[in-house]
Structures are given as structure tokens and as C-alpha cells.
Design a protein around this nucleic acid. Structure first.
Length: 462
RNA sequence: GGAGCCGUACCCAAGUGGUUAAGGGAGAGGUCUGCAAAACCUCUAUUCAGCGGUUCGAUCCCGCUCGGCUCCUCCA
């Protein structure tokens, strides 16, 4: 299988460290608000990754974190903590807030048919591991304590920013806030491992340096290495994590262990959405929690869409491409999915076993080519084989078999009576009456069709 | 200021240095139907933002221009 590795900026053949097994770590949600569908796009991509790896015969161990310790607005501090801001907004404790949105996030994952990772770990339950990692860094001379925090010393880590290929000197010249505030830090890019002296912060723990709380990046290093080992196969996340979060994860992990941290880094692109102030129809922007283009799974449902239609929309674009979201596009995805679910009449076009194997190989190759789901879906559509769709649904996760079953369920008594009444009216050529009855059946969620073999009524799916 | 990405039909979106530029949606026509719906069949880019260059040949490689996006700051 070929996967695009951000470290190499190219596709590479995936070779697991332990034959037959693969360890994956994915950056999970910060639970201070609902996830929007842009966030969820990344989890869908990661789900496709894990399912494809498993389809290829590997045993998958997938770890995802829940960030339930607040992040400050920036390492430079001053800003307001998101968790605390959310808690105040909703009149909940920070702990209750985190649990509330963790549950909401899990529900979204379920609605989108995203498989549960083997390990879901909360940052607040791994503070000891984070402290241990920080101690290790201090011992090895990669971290230093100042009055306000323990910092990672980026100057001591030679390959810092290799992943992002950042031009640190260029950044110094820039006007960005990140390099503007040095304060007690020794170098502009140094980042916090452990915050100290923040009496107002609601979540605090004791540490060798005093009471405080962990910096953001350290949780992913501590938890991924705990569950997957000091060197593991794949680390995923959104493309925005490359320059800071993942760069810092690599630095602190490798500095602590002296070993390579991760072999393959995979990053998902953004979902983009038309700008609100649309003087230009071609202007798109990423979805974000702070602006008004915030669309959640609930909003998708309220608009009459099945969450799986959104999943299907995501599959129709490659994970490393920006995907333009509009309600019209979601509608077209839902219509397409409806036809995938609909029972096809006639024989399977791939009756012949060798033809089936050829087609199967072609679809599998598309998926093994850096998870090319749009290509795979295109091939499945072209072949039009139920059997093939159902086999690859193990990867696509559209729940095809279940929907098919729902369509075959026996009709309720109420509906069969309406059908009988309509058939009588039709026999008597009372068209107005029969059409009214048909409308009634349709309004109850069924499709009605009259063919040479008589009338067929099935539940409408989607 | 620095780094990088993208621009394929009405919409979304794969793809390739050279035989017919996937697929989905929408649209058009047809089969079926009392009429519909669904399903099925057929059709819909001589062309891949524009202009140059490399090449026997470029949508795919290079350069420039235009347009859009992201990162450098919490962010999927």
C-alpha cells in the first residue's frame, strides 16, 4: 500500500514495524464545543485509513486522544482558555463541559459510521505520563524551568521543524505573534511543557516544578508512546497541525527517547465553505468554530440529510484535496447514495468469477493508492455490481447491507391496507382516489411503483 | 514579509506525457406506467484558467500572468 508521507512529501510503500500489525495515533477533539463537519471530515479520513489497512489484512491498533485540558489561546498565554470560556458560556464546570462534548462527539462518530478506535484516552487521565515525559526532557537538557512554565528548548533539538520544512529564520523576520513574544523563553519557538503559576486556572495538578497544568503538545506524545511504543507506524491529523503541533510532538518525543517517533505522517485537508459575504462566488474558506459557518451533524440532520450522505460526500473527494462544501453538493451526494442503496434489478454484471476478481483488484488498488476513495467509488459505480459494493463497504462504511435489509422489511398493516384500497380504486379506474391514496402512502415514507408485475411498495431510504 | 497548495463540463470530483479525459449529481431523450415515482438504457468537455517554453507529441513537465485557498497565532 502506498501512503503519502508528509515527512517525505511523497507517496511511500507502507511497511509496518511489526509484520501483520499497525499502530495508528490520531489527534482527537478538544471537547469544549460541538465538532463541526470540517473536523469530522478528518475523522472520516482516518476511519477510511484504518478500514483500508484492516482490509489489506493488518491488525489495527488505533489510538485517539480526547483533549479535555484547556488550551490557552496561545503559548504566549494572555489569551483565554477555551475550556474555561466554554464552561462559563454554558454554566457548567470544566469537567462537566468536557464530558458533555465528549459524549456529543462520540454520537457524531457513530452517526457517521466511524469505527471506535481501540483506545480513546483522555488527557486528564494521563497527567502523570506527561509529567514523566517532561521530567525526562529536563533531565536530558531539552527543557528548562522558568517562573511561568517549563519550556522545551528548541535550539537543543537539531532537526526541529523538519516535518514542516519551516524556515525559522524567515519566521523571525516576520510579524507573526509566535515569534514576537519571547518573554522568559530562551528562543522564540520554544513551547510550553508545563504551565506554572496560573492560580486562576481551574484544572491544576502537582508537579516537581509546582502546581500547574500541562502544555498542549505534550499530551499527544505521552499518550501515543504509552499505547503504541516509542516508535510507531502512523500518526494522523489535520493539515493545520503540521507546523506547530506535530512539529513539537516530534521534537519532544524524539528528544526524550532518542528514537524516531513516527514513521508515516498523514494529514487530511480542509473542508472549505463559501464565504458569507459573497461578492465573489469562488471565494471559499475553511470552516471554523469561531465564525458563523459552523455546521454540525445536528444541522445536517435538521436540514433533512442523513449523516451518511455527508460521509459519502467526503469519500467522493480525496483526503488530501480541499473539498468544497455546499448544501447542493450534499444533496447530490445524498441522491447518489440513495441509488447505491436502492436494490438493483437484473443479474449482477460481474457474474463471472474472474471478472469479479479483476474488478475487485482494481478497486483495491485504488484504495491502496493513498486511499483514493473517489477513484474507488467511481469504479464501483461503473461496475454496478451489488456484490462488489457490499464487499468494499467494509472500507467505505456506508452501511449498505443494513439499508438493503431495511428495504426488505415487511410492510406494516396500515400500509398494506392502503395498498389494497388503492388497488381497488385502480381496478375501478378511479384515478383521483388512487392517486390520493398513493400520496398518502408516499407521505408515510414509502416508494410506490406500478409495473407489469403489479404494484410494489418499499420503504424509502434517505 | 516568509512557506506551500489549488484552478478539469452547469455543480462536485478522479485521472494520464500519446489509443474513447473516470464517476456522482443536475439536465435532455427513451423503455416501463392510467398518469407518475423508482429502476434501466442513451446523450451531455475536440477539451483540462490564460499565455509562452521543453517535446515528435502536454491537460499532465518548466516559466510567467490571472483567480482561489491554507499555514507562519488556538485550529481538523
Amino acid at each position: 500500500m502506498q501512503l503519502y508521507n508528509t515527512l517525505a512529501r511523497s507517496k511511500q510503500e507502507f511497511v509496518p514495524i511489526v509484520p501483520g500489525k499497525v499502530g495508528i495515533y490520531c489527534c482527537g477533539p478538544t471537547v469544549y464545543n460541538f465538532a463541526h463537519i470540517g473536523n469530522l471530515r478528518t475523522y472520516i479520513f482516518e476511519d477510511i485509513l484504518r478500514r483500508t489497512l484492516r482490509f489489506s489484512g493488518l491488525e489495527v491498533r488505533h489510538v485517539m486522544n480526547i483533549t479535555d485540558v484547556g488550551h490557552l489561546e496561545s503559548d504566549a498565554d494572555e489569551g483565554e482558555d477555551k475550556m474555561e470560556k466554554g464552561a462559563r458560556r454554558e454554566g457548567l464546570s470544566v469537567w462537566d463541559l468536557a464530558r458533555k462534548y465528549e459524549a456529543a462527539w462520540l454520537a457524531d462518530m457513530t452517526a457517521l459510521n466511524i469505527e471506535r478506535p481501540e483506545v480513546i484516552c483522555r488527557a486528564t487521565e494521563h497527567v502523570a505520563e506527561m509529567i514523566a515525559l517532561t521530567e525526562r526532557l529536563v533531565e536530558r537538557g531539552f527543557a528548562y524551568a522558568a517562573p511561568g512554565a517549563v519550556y522545551f528548548d528548541t535550539s537543543r533539538f537539531g532537526s526541529y521543524a523538519e516535518l514542516a520544512r519551516l524556515d525559522l529564520s524567515g519566521m523571525q523576520a516576520g510579524a507573526g505573534g509566535r515569534v514576537g513574544v519571547v518573554g522568559e523563553k530562551r528562543h522564540p519557538n520554544d513551547f510550553v511543557l508545563w504551565f506554572l503559576d496560573r492560580p486562576k486556572h481551574l484544572m491544576q495538578w502537582d508537579s516537581p516544578w509546582g502546581r500547574g497544568y500541562p502544555g498542549w503538545h505534550v499530551e499527544c506524545s505521552a499518550m501515543s508512546m504509552k499505547y503504541l511504543g516509542e516508535t510507531f507506524d502512523i500518526h494522523c491529523g489535520g493539515i493545520d497541525h503540521i507546523p506547530v503541533h506535530h512539529t513539537n510532538e516530534i521534537a519532544q518525543s524524539e528528544a526524550a527517547t532518542g528514537k524516531p517517533f513516527v514513521r508515516y505522517w498523514l494529514h487530511g485537508e480542509f473542508l472549505i465553505i463559501g464565504k458569507q459575504d459573497a461578492d465573489d462566488d469562488d471565494a471559499y474558506t475553511k470552516m471554523s468554530k469561531s465564525s458563523d459557518n459552523f455546521i454540525t451533524v445536528s444541522v445536517v440532520k435538521e436540514r433533512g440529510f442523513d449523516p451518511l450522505s455527508y460521509r459519502f460526500l467526503c469519500l467522493m473527494a480525496h483526503y488530501r484535496s480541499e473539498l468544497k462544501f455546499t448544501w447542493e453538493n450534499l444533496e447530490s451526494a445524498q441522491q447518489g447514495l440513495r441509488r447505491v442503496y436502492a436494490q438493483r434489478s437484473g443479474p449482477d454484471p460481474l457474474e463471472n468469477d474472474s471478472a469479479y476478481e479483476d474488478a475487485r483488484g482494481e478497486v483495491a488498488r485504488a484504495l491502496y493508492d493513498d486511499l483514493n476513495t473517489p477513484n474507488a467509488v467511481g469504479l464501483l459505480s461503473r461496475y454496478g455490481s451489488d456484490r462488489l459494493w457490499q464487499e468494499f463497504d467494509a472500507v467505505l462504511g456506508l452501511g449498505i447491507a443494513q439499508r438493503r435489509l431495511e428495504r426488505e422489511e415487511p410492510l406494516p398493516e396500515e400500509i398494506t391496507q392502503l395498498i389494497a384500497a388503492r388497488n381497488e380504486a385502480r381496478k375501478a379506474k378511479e384515478w383521483a382516489k388512487s392517486d390520493a391514496l398513493r400520496d398518502e402512502i408516499i407521505s408515510k415514507g414509502y416508494e410506490v411503483g406500478d409495473g407489469p408485475q403489479g404494484t410494489t411498495v418499499k420503504p424509502r431510504i434517505l
